[in-house]
Design a protein around this nucleic acid. Structure first.
Lengths: 145, 145
DNA sequence: CAGTTTTAAGAGTATTTTGTCTGCAAAGTA
DNA sequence: TACTTTGCAGACAAAATACTCTTAAAACTG
């Protein structure tokens, strides 16, 4: 079952890594993150660029540069991240992919799926990066803990 | 949010179409389904072949041939379909894709995701094709209802 | 048997996603 | 200024997914 693309997964893991580092230095190096989390550097760079262009992060070049949160992670919700990396219609899609599916003409899984989706949405809309970060052991973000 | 691949989506829609047709004729033509549901004939054929090889369906060639349920749709659960078309580990994956994620070393989303996954699994394991089919309007299986 | 209808099987193509590489631009250091 | 460090941008490549096509094989029809 694949809910998030690799891009979202990598982006989220990097953001959570940044949360565990917040306060240490202004900017967190993308290279460092790519090595710690074992994610391709160039790929991660491109993902974080999306977040930077969406003003979730700010970046800085040169020595001791990197990326940093533009707004405190307390104010960034999971849904914000996912909307940027997966697209705006993340929660609007039908489970079966039927374009006409909706209240008016529900697909066979509509009712069943509606409850699950609402629960997921609720969680995504109330969970902040900071809240997730609170319970993180750094090793759990790595590939082979 | 993409939970099912196109293959699973098409397969499920075809199976539900068959449920609405059960009793009418022994075998349902793949060509007919592909046209009614606007799914590529050859692609659908291959997907249904998987279900046939897994003994969920039986097939018959020649005029008035097609596919039919091997066991009554009352006894086929959603999870059975998904396990065949998506693979056995459908419900075992971590939301963040972290291979080591588990009770021993939970990823940051582990607790949150556990609840959602359990609810989904519960639904998939208790919903039969026949039950889904009961509430189906045929048009809701078509691409542009 | 010859011809038609239908699924089976596998090769081939297209598209999307994921990942890599190269050069450039910005910022710091000496 | 020359050099190093870092992110930015876009082209390129590999892999996964989605789809197409061709040929065969089974079953029926006359």
């Amino acid at each position: 079952m694949k809910v998030l693309s690799k891009s979202s997964e990598y982006g989220l893991r990097a953001l959570l890594y940044m949360v565990t580092r917040s306060g240490e230095q202004e900017y967190v190096s993308i290279r460092e993150m790519s090595e710690e989390l074992e994610i391709s550097f160039h790929f991660l760079t491109k993902i974080l660029q999306n977040l930077t262009q969406a003003n979730m992060l700010v970046s800085y070049r040169g020595p001791s540069g990197g990326v940093a949160f533009n707004t405190p992670p307390e104010d960034i919700l999971l849904v914000d991240v996912v909307r940027i990396l997966e697209g705006d219609d993340f929660f609007d899609k039908c489970l079966l992919g039927l374009p006409g599916c909706g209240e008016r003409s529900p697909c066979p899984m509509h009712e069943f799926w509606k409850g699950i989706k609402a629960a997921l949405k609720q969680e995504f809309e109330t969970t902040s990066l900071a809240a997730m970060g609170k319970s993180i052991q750094l090793k759990s973000l790595r590939l082979v803990p």
